[in-house]
Design a protein around this nucleic acid. Structure first.
Lengths: 287, 287
DNA sequence: AAGTTATTTTTCAATACTGAAAAATGGATT
DNA sequence: AATCCATTTTTCAGTATTGAAAAATAACTT
């Protein structure tokens, strides 16, 4: 006995509802004969008579009546399947983006308004948790990072460069002794940063005047005229600090990390495109 | 855009599970090319890419992954549909039979053991509620009655005759005065019974020695040598009472009432056949 | 870097499905 | 009892679906 053909359930439901082959066939947009054969086939594969044939139309048997709600359950399942697919095909839902706080605050969030206009039903969640270095599926869908990913599970692309400069307050600049700068340096655990390494080479053994562990505190220190610091242009440009020099040798690449490019859903891809475009159009502000 | 073909969901599930067209096609017992086309058609009608094609096989997209559980829900619904149909096609379940207590006790129940042997998975529920005169669908599936049904919603067939006789104890018989019997009559509300009417005609104005409202009490009264009573042979044959005369003029027809014959489920029909056969084979004991 | 392998995609004849029209059915009406 | 009528069932030519084999593809191996 051949397995049931799921599509025949449509025929069963229509015929049960309309009662006559003629009307049911019209509702299904198929020939009268086809419908009759589908019902026949279904009854065969279920080994159960579903209808009684009268000249006035088809009438459900007891078996048919008892099976009707089961068929309707199938219909409901099929409906949610197609409906979910439609949802899936549209730009709807939430996408989680992991990134550095700097980029989030000064680059992404300011552009969010414009993004919402183009994709009103697509929402972005931003995660700036420092521990989300490796892009696990549950952590985030996308990441905008400044370290080259090592995990082989993800793919990535260079989308731009984050530029750094030597900054200080105007007052410090006026009083400055070029050969003997007061450097604000990164503290324990951040020695690997390109900015930290550059300062270390400038200090050549001398002591820094202050060490901190965040960009925000270094900005504060500069404004308080403690000394000079290496800051991203992106951050410093919003302050009253002055740029003494651009330091291109410690520029950092910005990578858009994605979960293996190809399998991504439409909405993830849309956000990825938005971020990639965003970095590219603002490349001047980053350098 | 054409509506989704439910059967293609099978293809989606198989391919998602086996990962390769070749194996999935084998599992579905169809050609490799057919499966490929079904997937293509499904993706088109859902307007969503479900798989990524690689030489190593098909891989679910994010959309496909998200839709997988929806498709599985459909599969589950289809499974219960077919399983229920199988149940429906077998002689399995319960059938509710409404009947008189006499017939239940002395005719149906004694034969139940034999019925269980032929249909071990089919259970009979017996309802002897007096109020279940009209066979509503929720009350009972079948009825074995001694009144001709009036409700047009049901069909019925004469399956036999219930015979009555004039009964008394042996002692009463020995002392009997034929012209002056002590009749045990039916009480208020039962005057319409054929037996009651027959006794009334015999009494011709005289008073009965006792009135009761059940067969069991009349049997008791006879055994206590109160008088003579009209009893169904079926009941009296199990007692020590003696039959003074057979009263064929008040025989009652036994009707098997069914919910409109044709639409009945297999199990109801099986029980109907059993009951019909039962009455016919025991017709001698009824008369 | 070329060859091997397992896979998908294409091709085409055979098969199955489809629908319009004709025939048959059986209940309803006169 | 004969006719009508709305329906199902059958018929048959056209269409779509199917599967085996051939061609193409790209990952993997030597």
């Amino acid at each position: 006995m051949k397995e049931m053909i799921w599509d025949d359930t449509k025929a069963f439901l229509a015929l049960a509802r309309f009662g006559t082959l003629t009307i049911a066939a019209k509702s299904l947009d198929m020939g009268i004969a086809t419908l009759s054969r589908k019902i026949e086939r279904l009854e065969h594969s279920l080994q159960t008579p579903l209808f009684l044939r009268f000249q006035t139309g088809y009438q459900l048997t007891d078996e048919g009546k008892n099976l009707l709600n089961k068929a309707e359950a199938m219909e409901a399942a099929a409906f949610t399947f197609t409906k979910s697919a439609k949802k899936e095909s549209q730009l709807i839902g939430r996408v989680k983006v992991a990134t550095a706080e700097n980029l989030a605050t000064h680059l992404i969030i300011p552009a969010l308004g414009h993004f919402q206009q183009t994709c009103p039903n697509l929402h972005i969640d931003i995660v700036t948790d420092i521990h989300t270095a490796n892009l696990h599926r549950r952590d985030a869908d996308l990441a905008l990072r400044m370290v080259r990913p090592t995990n082989g599970n993800v793919s990535f692309q260079r989308v731009g460069t984050l530029g750094y400069g030597l900054y200080c307050s105007t007052h410090y600049q006026n009083e400055r002794d070029d050969a003997n700068d007061n450097f604000i340096q990164w503290g324990d655990g951040y020695e690997h940063l390109p900015a930290a390494r550059w300062i270390a080479s400038q200090l050549a053994g001398k002591e820094p005047i202050l060490t901190t562990t965040s960009v925000a505190t270094q900005v504060s220190a500069c404004l308080a005229e403690v000394g000079v610091a290496i800051l991203p242009h992106l951050v410093a440009r919003h302050t009253e600090l002055v740029c003494l020099a651009n330091i291109p040798e410690i520029n950092q690449e910005i990578y858009l990390v994605i979960q293996t490019d190809l399998t991504q859903s439409k909405r993830t891809r849309a956000v990825a495109d938005f971020l990639s475009e965003l970095v590219k159009t603002h490349q001047d502000r980053l350098n």
